[in-house]
Every structure is written in C-alpha cells, then in structure tokens.
C-alpha cells in the first residue's frame, strides 16, 4: 500500500471529514490505486520546468477602493442554518 490506514485517517482529519470505518477502508484502497496511477508522472524529467499555476499571465488586479452596493445584513444571513438576526449562530466554542 502506498498510503497507510493511519495516513488516510490523518488526511480525513485535515479535510474535516468524518468517515466511517468502512469508508476509510474503501478510501485507502481507492487512494492507493490513484497514487499508483499518478506515479507515471515520475517518468518525466521536470528538472528546471517552471510550474503552471495559471494559464493567464496575471499581474495584481487592482481596483479603486470605493464603496459598492453589497448585501444587507438580512440578505447575508438569509441562508444561515440557525436563524439569528445578530449573526451566524454556531455551537459553543469557549467553555
């Protein structure tokens, strides 16, 4: 296996995903196959090749710092899972 069960669990914690034991097993198997497949990239010598992050040559995109119309508080909160006119309600963070 190119990836251990412990690594899969570690990655699921990094990704903030709760996975069941069965999902972790399946994920390990599929990730192992995928990592085996992408190993072919090592056949290519990429020494000195500049990586492409983006195809459009871009400078910083500046704009004037002007106030534009935005959402009202009501609009911004309209999709909140727990309605509260003051903000986004979440479980207690500080005990």
């Amino acid at each position: 296996m190119k990836i251990s069960r412990a690594e899969v669990e570690h990655v699921s914690r990094l990704a903030r995903l709760t996975l069941t034991d069965r999902e972790l097993d399946a994920m390990q198997d599929e990730m192992d196959k995928f990592l085996g497949y992408v190993e072919q990239l090592n056949q290519l010598d990429t020494e000195g090749i500049v990586p492409t992050a983006h195809v459009v040559p871009m400078e910083n995109a500046f704009r004037k710092d002007e106030v534009q119309p935005g959402f009202t508080r009501e609009q911004a909160l309209a999709n909140a899972p727990e309605p509260d006119p003051a903000g986004f309600r979440v479980p207690r963070v500080i005990e």
Partner: peptide, 19 residues
C-alpha cells in the same frame, strides 16, 4: 455548515459540526 447549506443536527462542538 456555518453560513449556508446543510448543518448536521448531531453536533456538540464547532469542529464536530464541520466534520
């Protein structure tokens, strides 16, 4: 699950709610 979309009903902490 904070600002929009599905939020699990089961969670008892913030991290738990995310995951």
């Amino acid at each position: 699950g904070v600002r929009f979309g599905l939020r699990s009903a089961e969670s008892d902490s913030l991290i738990d709610m995310y995951t």
